[in-house]
Amino acid sequence: MLCKKPDDKQAAVAVLENLLARAGSNKKAAIERELHIMRAGIKGEREAAYLIDFHLKDSRKTAVLHDLRLQLDDGRVAQIDHLLIHQTYRFYVLETKHFSHGVKITDEGEFLRWNDWKKTYEGMPSPIEQNERHVLVLKKALAMMGLPEPAVESMILVAPQARIDRSKKFNSSMVIKADQFLTAYQKNLDSANVLSMISGLVRTTFSESLVDISRKLLRMHRPILVDYEAKFGMRQDHALPLPALEQGPISIEFGNTPAVTAVAPVSEPASTAVALSVETTVHACKKCRSAKLSIQYGKFGYYFKCSDCDANAPAKVACGKDGHRERLRKDGKRFYRECQDCASSSLYFVNQD
Rank of each mutant, 00 (worst) to 15 (best):
S59V: 05
F170S: 02
I213K: 13
T204C: 06
M1S: 11
C285T: 02
N351Y: 08
L20C: 06
N188V: 02
P148R: 01
R90V: 14
A12Y: 00
L20E: 14
A40M: 12
I105F: 10
L2F: 07
H66V: 11
K187V: 04
F206D: 05
K97H: 02
D7M: 10
G248L: 02
R76N: 10
N256K: 14
L94R: 05
A284K: 14
C306H: 05
V260L: 11
Q71L: 00
A29I: 04
A162W: 05
F54G: 03
V135T: 14
N18Q: 14
I213W: 09
R337A: 15
A270F: 11
K216P: 00
L182S: 06
V103W: 04
G320I: 14
I176L: 06
V274T: 13
F300G: 07
A184S: 14
K316L: 15
K292D: 15
A275G: 14
A275L: 06
S294H: 14
G323D: 08
S307T: 08
D179K: 11
P265Q: 04
G320V: 13
I42F: 10
E108W: 06
L147H: 02
G248A: 06
Q79F: 01
K5L: 10
V13L: 08
T120S: 08
L276W: 00
V317G: 00
V226T: 13
R235M: 04
A270K: 09
K140M: 01
L16S: 08
E208W: 08
A29W: 04
H55E: 09
M145K: 12
Y185V: 02
Q236D: 15
L157K: 03
T62N: 02
S214L: 01
